[in-house]
Computed example of a mutant assay.
Amino acid sequence: MLLSIALILLVGMCMSWICQKIKLPGLLGMLATGVVLGPYVLNLLDSSILGISSELRKIALIIILTRAGLGLDLSGLKKIGRSAVMMCFVPASFELLGMLLIAPKLMGITLLEAAIMGAVLAAVSPAVVVPRMVKLMEEGYGVKEGIPQLILAGASVDDVYVIVLFSTFVGMMQGKGASVISFVNIPVSIILGIAIGLLIGVLLACFFKKVHIRDTTKVLIILSISFLLVTIEDKMTTAITFSALIAIMFIGIGLQKKREVVTKRISVKYGKLWVGAEVFLFVLVGATVNIGYLGKVGIKAVLLIAGALVFRMLGVFVCLLGTSLRGKEKAFVMMAYTPKATVQAAIGGIPLSLGFACGDMVLTVAVLAIVLTAPLGAFVIDLSYKKLLDKR
């Protein structure tokens, strides 16, 4: 395992640096590192680290979501509050609708199989989007208009909505039917996540005010609480749950409102943690990509993904109607809300493991979506934000 960790960090950082030097996103180098080192090419990564890959990716996601919460300026978001709510479910619904219209005719599958494929593809990737929105907030681009805050809020909830839809469609495929309570759980889990996160953030602020400890210790406490929240959510068997990832982001927001000076210092610590976590996240996402599947897909799968993304961007445009955002700012939000990676890597193989006839096709399209949209989306964001957004 130690050799695998060394390879992930050294090769991943080296490839990231090379990509940045040739004006490409560092993410592309990290993804390529994962593909090459992973089990489908050179197979140099130890099976033990691949076995805990999902947990390591989740830790990295926790770090960047907490950092996002610590730096999130809600004042800009309040101006476009309605759009922020709509961004949580409208773009994903539009993409799913596009898949239902296109996939049966193009790929020859049933409507229910298209719904499963659409649910796998419909989630935006927080792993790609969140760090870039944090960077925009730190540099001050689009913050006054609430653009990075809008995308952050939407991306954090979008996944919850899509995963519930995926679970429902899988249940229907298995003959269990659709559960009304699972749809009721969507808004409830979001509201509970926000409430729990804010409460913990406020309590931590009071604790840090009374008990003087090092900032590093504070980071360890926040991380430990975040891990506990994710574990509790995973272990819950009740019909109504809460979203741990949303709660984790709102811990930072609650802490920020009560102890702003401390929050800024903790945010710097989290920024340093992200340097290593980012490498692990994207290298391990790359390691899940089986390039052997890509040889099986033709132009139809590419057209399917492109068509679904057009519907997604249309959904984003609908969300932004009636806002004060200019055309170029709307164009940025539409492009920034397209990358796929983490959710597709996590659930893309489930239909195949369950023995569904569409399983191989779903996994193939999911892998292709990661390969196409993660680096392309990151590249477009990095290339366009200074041109399309105003700096405060």
Rank of each mutant, 00 (worst) to 15 (best):
K176E: 15
L199E: 04
G197L: 09
I194A: 00
I248V: 15
T237R: 14
S243Y: 08
F227H: 04
I240T: 13
L203K: 09
C206Y: 14
A178D: 01
T238I: 03
F242G: 09
S179A: 12
E145R: 12
I225V: 14
G140M: 09
I225Q: 02
G201H: 07
V164T: 11
A195Q: 06
I232G: 02
P148C: 11
G171L: 12
E138C: 08
D158T: 04
L165I: 10
G177A: 12
F208M: 08
S179L: 10
L229Y: 03
F183I: 11
V188M: 15
H212C: 01
K218L: 05
G175D: 09
F250S: 01
D159A: 11
S189N: 08
L165Y: 05
S182C: 08
V230R: 06
D215R: 11
I246V: 15
I186W: 13
T238L: 11
V202C: 00
D158P: 03
V143S: 06
K144M: 07
I191Y: 04
I200E: 01
L229S: 04
S226V: 04
F169I: 02
T217V: 14
I163Q: 02
N185H: 12
E145K: 14
Q174L: 15
E145W: 06
I151Y: 07
V143P: 03
G142S: 08
I213D: 06
L220P: 03
A153P: 00
I222E: 01
C206N: 10
A239P: 12
